[in-house]
């Protein structure tokens, strides 16, 4: 091999080159389906949910989150698909050319209403605003099952200074398990345990979090749709009556604690940070943080005090 001698000089700026590209994926074919009589084109592989959203049709979801694998467990997003014996979950069913879908049929409305009846009759939905809005929308009547209907009522678990877990508010959407597991954190501190109505989210043998594999990234809290999982700071403020979302600002900024560049959304009330979350749609973080990003802001409190 001949030996080139031309060596770069640090004094000379590196010249500009073509913009690097991600190797192109095969282009996705557009397919057309009909929803409530309206035609809509979506890329192959898109879900019915994406198609309904494209048409501006409001499809309720609880266990679905853009950043997590669909588990389609809550079934509140079901729609009627012509030719299908049962309803299908919009969140995970892929659109196929020629599908005819109905989102407002009697069957759809009944199933959605019953799902909400089922949840609200067994779970405390007091801190689940989205679910409560759906209940209103679909005319849910959870009281029809009577005061003696079985519930998952239990005392909140507070076994550390950062998290509060109140499983009487858990609708078992699996999001926290997915966020703790392969979809984000790969820590696997929690899993669904038990079966049937007694299925619940648990560490092994229900040991307290500080004995578990938990690394307090807070990603489970970040995805919890019902307030079953809550930062203790928020829980304490709610208990003290000093949590007021109408008085809170949300500001996006960057975590100071390492070079990843995680996007933080800082929630502040009366000039004090009260919570840190992370936007799902940011390419760096996709809603996920670590213990430092999630809780490392607390020094700002002690600073204000000194």
């Amino acid at each position: 091999m001949s030996e080139p001698s031309q060596a770069p000089s640090p004094l000379i700026p590196v010249p500009r080159a073509p913009v690097p590209q991600i190797p192109a994926a095969a282009p996705r074919r557009e397919i057309e389906i009909t929803i409530d009589g309206k035609r809509v084109a979506v890329p192959e592989g898109a879900t019915i949910l994406e198609a309904t959203r494209k048409l501006g049709i409001d499809t309720p979801t609880l266990c679905f989150l853009e950043t997590l694998t669909p588990v389609n467990a809550c079934r509140v997003c079901v729609v009627e698909l012509e030719g299908s014996r049962t309803l299908v979950p919009a969140c995970s069913r892929k659109a196929e050319a020629g599908m005819a879908v109905h989102t407002e049929s009697e069957r759809v409305l009944l199933s959605r209403r019953l799902v909400l009846d089922f949840l609200a009759s067994s779970v405390d939905v007091s801190t689940a605003p989205t679910l409560r809005a759906y209940m209103e929308q679909y005319g849910a009547r959870p009281d029809r099952f009577g005061a003696r209907a079985q519930t998952v009522a239990q005392a909140p678990k507070i076994d550390n200074e950062l998290y509060m877990r109140d499983y009487s508010k858990c609708i078992l959407c699996y999001k926290c398990v997915e966020a703790c597991g392969v979809d984000a954190q790969n820590t696997f501190a929690i899993s669904v345990a038990g079966r049937g109505f007694s299925a619940h989210i648990s560490t092994e043998f229900d040991i307290p979090l500080p004995q578990s594999a938990c690394v307090y990234c807070g990603n489970c809290i970040g995805v919890c749709p019902t307030g079953a999982l809550m930062f203790k700071t928020e829980y304490d403020r709610r208990a003290a009556g000093t949590w007021d979302e109408t008085q809170q600002t949300q500001t996006d900024t960057i975590c100071p604690y390492c070079g990843v560049g995680c996007e933080l959304t800082v929630h502040a009330q009366e000039g004090q940070i009260v919570k840190v979350s992370s936007p799902l749609d940011h390419s760096v973080t996709q809603g996920n943080l670590c213990i430092k990003g999630r809780f490392g802001w607390q020094f700002t409190d002690s600073r204000a005090a000194t």
Binding site: E161, L162, C214, Y216, I291, G296, Q298, F299, S302
Partner: peptide, 9 residues
Amino acid sequence: QSQRFPSPL
């Protein structure tokens, strides 16, 4: 900064 939050870890 980091020693000013109650980390269970």
